[in-house]
């Protein structure tokens, strides 16, 4: 076997090693290459930016831990954007494992080690104020701080469970749950993931069904995102936004063109674009994990292209194109 033949039959572990190196190194040498935003992501950003405390959105955590590197940053970015504008956020999950992802996203956004975190107030902790009828966000923050509570250093703001977010979580046969949510949220989720009665939550009293909600973002690692289009968008006209893994992104352009979704974030790139928009507009102090990941992705893509080019050089220089085709292809 000549050198070209050896090159084509290279032990694939060398390729794995190369990918390993280019995936790890950029984490230590942060290049911070610029990310330009696209209209697919800008449209979601602009839509959420228009909303206020009278509106409400759903963020559905339709991804498993496997795709969290891609799906988590986009869910977190939209959640932080909504909290910044005081837009109540309902959080759901279409699978038991995805429920864990919802809790992990909350842990991240509420964690004091996260830059620009939100200080979470448990549902029980502000019961007294709620029962006194103080539920409007501005009044609530004022009353809460008058009780001697102080916003910690570095926190962007307060979020009150039941007023600013409801962690509804997982419910079985989620496609039917979406259908049910178009009629009543409380019927589908009488209690939230923490066992709080949803009927007592001010945000549920103001937004009783998906008809009274303004957007659903499905951050999805599977085909479950289409359920939102089928059961919510087509039935009651709820605007839908997609957050997809990079592999899936190409699959869902027809929904964008037909106007069935208002925008989509594709993979780490889509999430990084949203982070850039948040940081540029002062909603978050800086960009987050997805933006850092773009350096890794750049390096990995370059290596793969290099491998393809090398493979082709060896293929043609070695004269393999004249012989029986190698394995692969239909």
């Amino acid at each position: 076997m000549n050198i070209w033949g050896k090159m084509l039959n290279i032990d694939r572990r060398w390729i794995f090693l190369g990918i390993g190196v280019v995936s790890i190194v950029p984490f230590f040498i942060n290049f911070g290459m610029p990310v330009r935003t696209t209209r697919e992501v800008e449209s979601i950003y602009e839509y959420v930016d228009e909303l206020g405390s009278d509106n409400a959105i759903f963020i559905s955590f339709d991804f498993a831990p496997g795709t969290q590197a891609e799906n988590m940053p986009m869910s977190v970015a939209v959640m932080r954007h909504a909290f910044y504008n005081d837009v109540p956020v309902f959080m759901t999950a279409n699978y038991p494992l995805h429920h864990g992802m919802m809790l992990a996203a909350m842990d991240y956004v509420f964690n004091p080690t996260t830059e620009g975190f939100y200080e979470d107030v448990d549902f029980e902790d502000w019961r007294e104020l709620r029962e006194a009828g103080v539920t409007a966000k501005d009044e609530l923050v004022e009353a809460w701080e008058n009780q001697g509570n102080q916003l910690p250093d570095g926190a962007t703001g307060w979020v009150f469970e039941g007023r600013d977010y409801a962690a509804l979580g997982y419910a079985p046969v989620f496609s039917l749950v979406i259908l049910g949510l178009t009629v009543s949220i409380e019927t589908q989720y009488p209690v939230d993931a923490h066992g709080n009665s949803t009927g007592e939550m001010p945000m549920l009293q103001e937004h009783k069904s998906l008809r009274e909600v303004d957007l659903a973002l499905t951050s999805s690692g599977s085909g479950a995102c289409v359920w939102w289009v089928t059961f919510a968008r087509e039935k009651i006209g709820l605007p839908i936004a997609f957050g997809l893994t990079a592999v899936m992104a190409t699959d869902y352009f027809p929904y964008l063109q037909s106007g069935q979704v208002i925008g989509q974030m594709g993979g780490l790139r889509g999430a990084a674009e949203y982070e850039v928009l948040l940081a540029e507009n002062g909603i978050t102090p800086s960009t987050d994990k997805a933006f850092v990941g773009m350096d890794v992705q750049s390096a990995a893509h370059l290596l793969i292209i290099l491998l393809i080019v090398m493979g082709n050089i060896a293929f043609f220089a070695g004269g393999f194109h004249k012989k029986t085709l190698l394995k692969g292809g239909r």
Binding site: I10, I15, I304, I308, G311, N312, F315, K327, G328
Partner: peptide
């Protein structure tokens, strides 16, 4: 990466 190296050929 491995699949692209083996399969992407300008045949």
């Amino acid at each position: 990466a491995s699949a692209a190296f083996r399969a992407f050929r300008a045949k």
